[in-house]
Amino acid sequence: MADSSSADNPLDQLRLSLMQDVLPVGLAVLERARQGGPTKVAEVFSGASADPIADLREEGEPAARTVREQLDQVSPGLGNPVMPVSVSVEEPVASPDERSELIIALQRIEGRLEELSRRLPADS
Rank of each mutant, 00 (worst) to 15 (best):
A48Y: 04
R99G: 05
V87H: 02
E69G: 11
P24G: 08
M19G: 09
G37Y: 01
E58I: 04
I103D: 04
A54Y: 02
A28Q: 06
T66R: 14
L120N: 11
S75Y: 08
S100G: 00
S88F: 05
D51R: 10
E59V: 01
V85M: 08
S86K: 06
A54G: 13
R119L: 15
R34S: 13
A54K: 12
E98N: 00
P84L: 04
G47L: 04
R34T: 10
E69A: 15
P38Q: 14
R57H: 11
E90H: 09
P92H: 00
E61R: 12
S117Y: 09
L102G: 07
A48K: 14
A54C: 03
L71V: 08
A64I: 07
E110Q: 15
F45W: 06
D72L: 08
P121D: 10
V82L: 06
D21N: 13
D51C: 03
A64C: 05
V22G: 00
Q35D: 13
Q107R: 13
S49L: 08
L18D: 09
E31M: 10
Q70L: 15
L106F: 07
G60C: 09
E90Y: 02
E114M: 14
S46N: 12
E101C: 02
Q73G: 05
G79W: 00
M83S: 11
S117N: 14
G26M: 10
S100N: 07
S88E: 11
E114D: 15
T66D: 13
V25F: 03
R112T: 07
A42K: 12
A122N: 12
L78W: 01
E69I: 05
E90T: 12
M19F: 03
E61A: 15
V74K: 12
R112G: 07
A50D: 08
V85S: 10
P121I: 03
R99P: 00
S17H: 15
E31W: 02
L16K: 12
R118K: 14
A28T: 07
S95G: 05
R108I: 09
L116Y: 13
K40L: 11
S117M: 11
D97I: 00
P76G: 07
P81K: 07
G37C: 11
L16Y: 06
D97C: 00
E59R: 09
Q107Y: 06
S88G: 08
L27K: 01
S46A: 12
A122G: 05
R99N: 02
Q107A: 06
R32I: 00
A28K: 03
R32N: 07
Q35M: 09
A33D: 01
M83A: 11
D97V: 01
P76E: 12
E61F: 04
P81R: 05
I104A: 08
G36F: 15
E59M: 11
R99M: 03
G111R: 09
S17E: 13
P62R: 12
A105D: 03
R108F: 04
I103A: 10
V41C: 05
L30N: 14
T66I: 09
D97H: 04
S75Q: 12
F45T: 00
S88P: 00
S17K: 11
V41Q: 04
R65H: 15
E58A: 13
A33E: 06
V67Q: 01
G47E: 02
G111S: 11
P24Y: 04
R118I: 02
